[in-house]
Computed example of a mutant assay.
Amino acid sequence: MSTELEVDVEYDEIVASHSTLIKGEKVVYIDRGKGKNKLLIGLATLMNKGVYAGVKSYYRDYPGDVLCLVDPDNTYYLRNDRGMHVRSVIREVVKDYKPENVVFCGASMAGFAAIDLALFFNANAVVNNPQVSLELTYDTAWPKLKDVIDEIEQKYNIDDFSFKSRNSVIGAVFGQHPMDAVNRDALFKLCSKTPGVGLIFGNAFDFEHKYYYQGLNGFLKMVDMVFAHRELMGGIHVKFPRV
């Protein structure tokens, strides 16, 4: 039986073997050597303390390539430049993949970044109780989260943006906590005004701000559904092209 120490050593070994520096940012990039097919981008959530979320599980059980980032200052990956640096780092990797084969993944704070980046790169997202509007989040958040949002120098609401069109597919699960309910509605608003976007939606009957995917298998099922939905929507977009 593995001890907790051995598990930690395994994490350290994976990170050490697959870490790379891109534009001054230390990331974990796992290239399976299968021709740049599917790419999962894992974003660590609030109070991550520099720990790459899901690295061990992705390394063991996700068959595609993996890129993992952290945001130890809890800026919703916006840093001090409205996310420009993080985008430039990710661009160096995603340029080798088709947008339809890229999925950003994150919960809560990282869910905000996953949706934001997916739309920017016309890729996809799998999220759990994501924030979409930081303004609405602030109005319904607990005090410590309000403090986090107060510290972000240059912030914005994703649902304030207008995209002419996107092919992105977003898989999202929300609970009934007031903060999650207002962000659920903000995501609906965002999708309804963005032609071409696909949405797979789950509405959990729970009133806490929690993570709902049942282990890695449940999470990967949503990833598979998002890719399948993207393929379906691609056929629809071909039949009804943009004018």
Rank of each mutant, 00 (worst) to 15 (best):
L5I: 04
E6L: 00
E6P: 01
Y11W: 02
D12Q: 14
V15L: 02
A16C: 02
A16S: 12
A16R: 13
A16M: 09
S17G: 07
S19L: 03
T20L: 15
E25R: 14
E25M: 13
V27M: 05
V28S: 09
D31Y: 08
D31H: 09
G33C: 04
K36Y: 11
K36L: 11
N37A: 10
K38G: 04
L39S: 03
I41Q: 01
L43G: 03
A44N: 03
A44P: 02
T45E: 06
M47T: 14
N48K: 06
K49N: 15
K49Q: 11
G54H: 12
G54F: 10
V55K: 00
S57E: 14
S57P: 01
Y58H: 13
Y59K: 04
V66E: 08
L67H: 04
L69S: 11
P72R: 08
Y76T: 02
Y77R: 05
R79E: 14
D81H: 04
D81E: 07
D81Y: 08
M84Y: 11
H85R: 11
V86N: 00
S88V: 01
S88P: 09
V89M: 12
V89C: 12
P99N: 09
E100D: 14
N101M: 06
G106R: 04
A107N: 14
A107T: 14
A110N: 12
G111A: 06
F112K: 08
L117R: 02
N124C: 00
V126A: 12
V127E: 06
N129Q: 05
E135C: 04
T140L: 09
A141V: 06
K146R: 14
Q154S: 08
N157Q: 08
N157M: 08
I158Y: 03
D159I: 10
F163N: 05
S168C: 12
I170W: 06
I170Q: 06
A172K: 07
N183R: 09
R184C: 12
R184I: 00
L187K: 13
F188Q: 07
K189M: 07
K189L: 14
K193Q: 15
G196M: 10
L199Q: 07
N203K: 10
A204R: 05
H209K: 11
K210V: 07
Q214T: 11
G215W: 03
L216I: 13
L216M: 10
G218Y: 15
L220S: 00
F227I: 01
H229Y: 12
I236C: 05
H237N: 13
F240Y: 14
R242L: 13
V243K: 13
